[in-house]
Amino acid sequence: MADPRDRVRAPRPASGAGSLRVGRLTKPHGLKGGIKLELFTDNPELRFVPGAVFHLQVPEDSEWFGRTITMRELRWFNEAPVGFFAEVEDRTAAESIVRAILWIDEDAVEAGEEENAWYDHQLVGLDVVRDGEVVGKVSEVQHFPAQDLLTVATPAGPVLVPFVEAIVPSVDLEAGIVTITPPDGLFESGDDA
């Protein structure tokens, strides 16, 4: 059986590669290897637990390329999450790994109970519905540090939809539907405006 670490490589695992992006390391915290985290999960208590293993998305020339890190502890300082990892022993090591994206493998995803988490390949091809009408299909999921975007293919061309609960309140994989409540003007063409 292949080593699960081989499934995730920089710059980013391909859609459907059996991984879920859960966070990003932003900057060192203190002298003992702590690193501030940007979380891409609604349930850090499920993902960032002692013993959790994270695959790293880093440039190929990084000393961390192809490696994993293991969570020792997650602490909160001034409402900001700070991770401590077994392989990151001091500030120097923390500085060398900053900006890495953290991914967990499919087995870890399936073992958890995270709501509102989907693989890109599950979303691509779903009908996008607004007020009961199909307005297009999801053609791509784009990942950015602040938020993800759904690219929706429409007859008038692609529309980028922020993948946030206020605009995308539900995803029904069984029905093949992404329900959206976009702000005025996002989907209107010149004729409709």
Rank of each mutant, 00 (worst) to 15 (best):
A2L: 12
R7I: 06
A10R: 03
P11R: 04
P11T: 05
R12A: 15
R12T: 13
P13I: 06
S15W: 08
G18I: 03
G23V: 04
T26K: 13
T26F: 02
K27C: 06
L31V: 11
L31G: 05
G34I: 11
G34Q: 07
E38W: 10
L39A: 06
F40A: 09
F40C: 07
T41G: 03
E45C: 07
F48L: 10
F48K: 02
P50C: 11
G51P: 01
V53P: 00
H55Q: 12
R67T: 13
I69H: 02
M71D: 01
R72H: 05
R75L: 14
N78G: 07
A80M: 13
A80T: 15
P81W: 02
V82A: 08
G83H: 03
F85K: 05
V88E: 09
R91L: 07
E95L: 14
E95C: 08
V98E: 10
L102Q: 04
W103P: 01
E106D: 13
E110C: 05
E110G: 02
E113K: 11
N116D: 15
W118S: 07
Y119G: 06
Y119Q: 09
Q122C: 09
Q122N: 12
D131K: 12
D131F: 07
D131R: 14
V135I: 14
K137Q: 15
V138F: 01
E140V: 03
H143D: 11
H143A: 12
H143G: 03
D148T: 05
L149V: 08
T151F: 02
P155L: 04
A156N: 09
P158S: 10
L160P: 00
A166E: 14
P169I: 08
A175K: 08
G176A: 04
T179E: 15
E188N: 10
E188C: 01
S189H: 01
G190I: 14
D192I: 10
